[in-house]
Nucleic acid binder design. Structure first.
Lengths: 230, 230
DNA sequence: CCTCGAGCGAGAGCACTGCTCTCGAAACCG
DNA sequence: CGGTTTCGAGAGCAGTGCTCTCGCTCGAGG
């Protein structure tokens, strides 16, 4: 599996990678909607129909880019948290949030591809689910660590949400209290609200010092899931 | 201005409205990226070039739809809050949030148009700013009312954010304390994170009882800006 | 070693898009 | 009434995703 036998198989891998690379370049430059199969093929010196030997449709190419983007974001977030166990859970949380924001600012079109409006008529295939979960799992892990070491603050759930909260806890983090898991899921979504508003221009003429604003908001999110600063 | 003189001016208004209506229909059915000028013209029994007498480009038509969408959302939110002064600020806040979510679920493609990834190469014109502000202003108004009547909970800002917080307060709500305005702006963005995640499928296989989950999250947002339930 | 099928690139072509230009008819205004 | 503006129709351009066919070439099986 790691060593393709023939020259043909090797070429296929290389061409596939070259297509993705060129597509990613166009995505970064122009955005998903302006990504053109023909332009990618042109840039690679092939004819557009040849590209269909590698990706059955434009959507499949986009899906490959989506998976790569999720993994790139996940890797960035994980790298930011690596070896940071001793700075305390709240700081780790804020660090991961800042890594997500930083990645989004550096790759706006890729961020838009995965967290903006989904391409119309396009529904994410199964293969995107694990890469898409990486940041969420990382955040869960931070709270789990905190819960195990110093405990976390908790507040009560309304009765109507208790069954759902228990269900989410079983699915996502059976070792955490349901009210914490609920807060975690909400904070996860809210994080992307903050990033998206900054990225998509909703903060224009509203927030100027965005980094400081974001850091503070992320710290409040941490507080909301029960993490405390030492 | 209210009574167009000639039959020509009247016809122009009617045709413009018909174009927008048909475009909105296609937008709702297929999404912004698949909205086609030619298809709109075809459906209206005109030829595509005729449509350019009314909208100089596809982007201009989209802009008109964006403004309408902002106004529709704003109207819905304002209607939900109308005459609700006596249920208390926290309940009013949650009510407005639920109205936003309800509108988004009812008009997913229009929501994606205004709060999803911006159309590539497209930057929002001045004319979209006032309609886009309606929900934000409504939320500010609720907190202002609460502040005037019973006061709001406040927590401290980090030093690095104080100048920015004061600046935002001057711009948005000079009568509110800067830390409340800061929390308000963050909550405003976070609200759209919650709605967007639900709408764009990020909650699939994660959150099931979405209405109850959202109500709870919105209540926590209210708490975050200092509103308390009676 | 040779052969035959599978993989591959090129090219033509289809149906579609946004947009421009021109032309003739209709409506408006002095 | 006459001149000007406004409008719809049509043709056309450059671009898109995608399909199909045609040869060439590579490589696995006999």
């Amino acid at each position: 599996m790691s060593t393709p036998q023939g020259a043909r198989a090797r070429a296929r891998i290389e061409v596939t990678a070259a297509i993705k690379e060129e597509a990613r370049k166009q995505l970064a430059a122009e955005g998903a909607a302006r990504l053109s199969l023909r332009a990618v093929a042109r840039e690679l010196g092939m004819v557009s129909s040849a590209l269909y030997r590698y990706f059955p449709s434009r959507d499949d190419l986009l899906t490959a880019l989506i998976i790569d983007a999720y993994n790139s974001l996940g890797e960035t977030a994980e790298a930011a948290d690596a070896g940071a166990e001793d700075i305390g859970p709240a700081r780790r949380w804020v660090g991961v949030c800042e890594a997500v924001r930083g990645w989004a600012l550096a790759h706006p079109h890729e961020y838009a591809l995965i967290y903006g409006s989904p391409v119309p008529g396009y529904s994410a295939p199964e293969a995107t689910i694990p890469p898409a979960s990486r940041v969420g799992l990382l955040l869960i892990g931070i709270v789990r660590d905190a819960y195990g070491r110093h405990g976390v603050a908790r507040d009560r759930l309304p009765a109507e949400l208790e069954p759902e909260a228990r269900r989410m806890a079983v699915d996502l983090a059976p070792d955490l209290p349901p009210e914490v898991v609920t807060a975690l899921v909400a904070a996860w979504a809210q994080l992307y609200g903050l990033v998206g508003f900054e990225l998509f221009g909703q903060f224009n003429n509203v927030v100027v010092e965005r980094e400081a604003f974001f850091r503070h908001a992320a710290a409040r999110l941490a507080h909301g899931v029960g993490l405390v600063f030492p």
